[in-house]
Design a protein around this nucleic acid. Sequence first.
DNA 1: ACCTGAACACCGTTCAAGT
DNA 2: ACCTGAACACCGTTCAAGT
Lengths: 210, 210
Amino acid sequence: MAPHRLTPSIVLDTYVALADGASTPVTLAALGAHLGVDTSAVYRHFADKDALLAAAADHVLAPVTERLPTTTWDATVRTICTRLRRQLLRYPTLAAQVRSGPPLHPNEFRLTEALLRTLTDAGFPDEQAALAYHAIIELTVGSVALDAEIAAQSTSARRATYRRWQRVYADLDGDEFPTATRIAQSLYAGSADDRFDYALAALLAGLARP
Amino acid sequence: MAPHRLTPSIVLDTYVALADGASTPVTLAALGAHLGVDTSAVYRHFADKDALLAAAADHVLAPVTERLPTTTWDATVRTICTRLRRQLLRYPTLAAQVRSGPPLHPNEFRLTEALLRTLTDAGFPDEQAALAYHAIIELTVGSVALDAEIAAQSTSARRATYRRWQRVYADLDGDEFPTATRIAQSLYAGSADDRFDYALAALLAGLARP
DNA sequence: ACCTGAACACCGTTCAAGT
DNA sequence: ACCTGAACACCGTTCAAGT
């Protein structure tokens, strides 16, 4: 069925397709099955699974820096971060790879350049641009780690989960947890994307006025 | 050697001790060996490894809310976040557990209450307190996911790693990456803790002045 | 009642043998 | 030159058998 003549890019594309929306790691067995090839054949083209994951993770970041808006600096930053978050939430098993190390691949370099360029063009001195870059990346990439598990669920399942958590807080002992019980219905309100947007807006506002 | 009479808290304490500073998952085999007990004996006291991890993660958060300062609201928030980050960096294999779900254990409830209480006392309306809480947690817990791998290294090894990364950016093609190459020496400057403090201060400033 | 020990399923990885 | 297939190490989990 599938071609028995592998190339790195065929392996990569197939792996990315399998990782799309996958909340548990994609095994090499699954990859081999979809390629119509023995599990071990992949080792001809990638040193190990980690190398394949790294390549796949960078592959998925390509859309992040395409055709960026040039209206205001914070609109550009928000676009980059929203796209980055979106891609990482779509490929949760690759997001771990992006978190684990610094951006040392082509599309990650482009992402870094775009953010740094936007910040320095906006008037941030070099050192503050670097600190702002780190802050923005920590919030954006970090937020994915918190939201990934829930993002994989359907919209209705997600809302039900959030409601369940709200109830847990509402049902706590009011003497020990007066604030949590009182504002339980405000916790996990709206979507995770909304909460991220709010956090990013606050961070950018704070970075601009130190 | 070790007692063959297990209790949940003996299992828990031993597991936490093994997880201290461990950058790779602590296996049940390692736990059994240190307890002087067969691997499978743990299943008498915890449903599975996930339950053990959850209990260990919460156990480690106990110091976060002890004797909090009551000077200013942002000093309190910073103390909570610094302690939380510190504990999660110390136990990287448990940090993943904290990230994966919402705070639904005793010490996590205390942490949530302390943050929400501090924010509402500072004058944040309920809805904004909840959004601020989520933003603060995303940055703090998320930052650990990015810094954990490096934090496990010794100070000198860490500095060498940062210098290596700076050189990678400095050596990029200057035409395609003009900004990254120019400010390469400002990237990964100082410690990860410094960069986190900067990010948290900016976030808190932005949250206070929406 | 609690632990042991063998067994199983799963997964990444290696390597000699095939074509 | 490239893939197959068997084998290995590792890890979480189950369960009948021991005491």
